[in-house]
Amino acid sequence: DYEVGESVTVMDGPFATLPATISEVNAEQQKLKVLVSIFGRETPVELTFGQVSKI
């Protein structure tokens, strides 16, 4: 299970290999909103559970 505030690594898509912090969890739809730090700015990205891995 994923929790808000948890650190994960993006495994898929254009942000693969980047660390991210979970900002929202939708367990019903198996989706997460995460904040990816790009060029010093936090960018919100919506991903599925399968696109991230716990650190």
Rank of each mutant, 00 (worst) to 15 (best):
Y2P: 03
E3Y: 15
E3L: 12
V4G: 02
V4M: 05
G5Y: 04
E6R: 05
E6P: 01
E6L: 06
S7A: 12
S7L: 15
S7P: 08
S7K: 15
V8T: 01
V8A: 02
T9V: 15
T9H: 08
T9M: 15
V10T: 02
V10G: 00
M11D: 05
M11V: 12
M11F: 05
M11N: 10
M11W: 06
M11K: 09
D12C: 14
D12E: 13
D12L: 09
G13C: 04
P14M: 08
P14V: 08
P14F: 07
F15K: 01
F15I: 02
F15V: 02
F15D: 01
F15N: 03
F15R: 02
A16M: 08
A16R: 12
A16G: 05
A16I: 09
A16E: 06
T17A: 09
T17S: 13
T17E: 08
T17H: 13
L18A: 06
L18P: 00
P19R: 15
A20S: 04
A20I: 02
A20V: 05
T21I: 15
T21E: 06
T21F: 08
T21N: 05
T21H: 06
I22G: 00
I22T: 01
I22R: 00
I22P: 00
I22S: 01
S23M: 15
S23K: 12
E24W: 13
E24I: 07
E24F: 11
E24S: 09
E24D: 08
E24K: 06
E24V: 08
V25G: 00
V25M: 05
V25H: 02
V25R: 03
N26V: 07
N26M: 12
N26H: 11
A27I: 13
A27S: 12
A27M: 13
E28M: 11
E28W: 08
E28N: 09
E28C: 09
E28Q: 11
E28G: 10
Q29I: 08
Q29L: 12
Q29A: 12
Q29V: 08
Q30M: 11
Q30I: 03
Q30D: 05
Q30S: 09
Q30C: 10
Q30W: 08
K31W: 11
K31P: 01
L32G: 00
L32H: 00
L32E: 00
L32N: 00
L32Y: 05
K33V: 15
K33C: 10
K33I: 15
V34Y: 01
V34I: 06
V34R: 00
L35R: 08
S37E: 09
S37K: 14
S37P: 05
S37C: 15
I38Q: 09
I38K: 06
I38G: 07
I38H: 09
F39D: 12
F39C: 13
G40F: 04
G40T: 04
G40M: 04
G40H: 04
R41C: 12
R41K: 13
E42F: 10
T43Y: 15
T43S: 08
T43M: 12
T43P: 03
P44Y: 15
P44I: 15
P44V: 15
V45H: 05
V45W: 07
V45M: 08
V45N: 02
E46P: 04
E46N: 07
E46A: 06
L47K: 02
T48I: 06
T48N: 12
T48R: 09
T48S: 13
T48E: 10
F49R: 03
F49D: 01
F49N: 03
G50T: 12
G50C: 09
G50N: 12
Q51T: 04
Q51C: 05
Q51N: 05
Q51I: 03
V52E: 00
V52L: 03
S53Y: 07
S53E: 11
S53F: 07
S53H: 10
S53M: 12
K54N: 05
K54G: 04
K54P: 06
K54S: 06
I55P: 09
I55Q: 10
I55C: 10
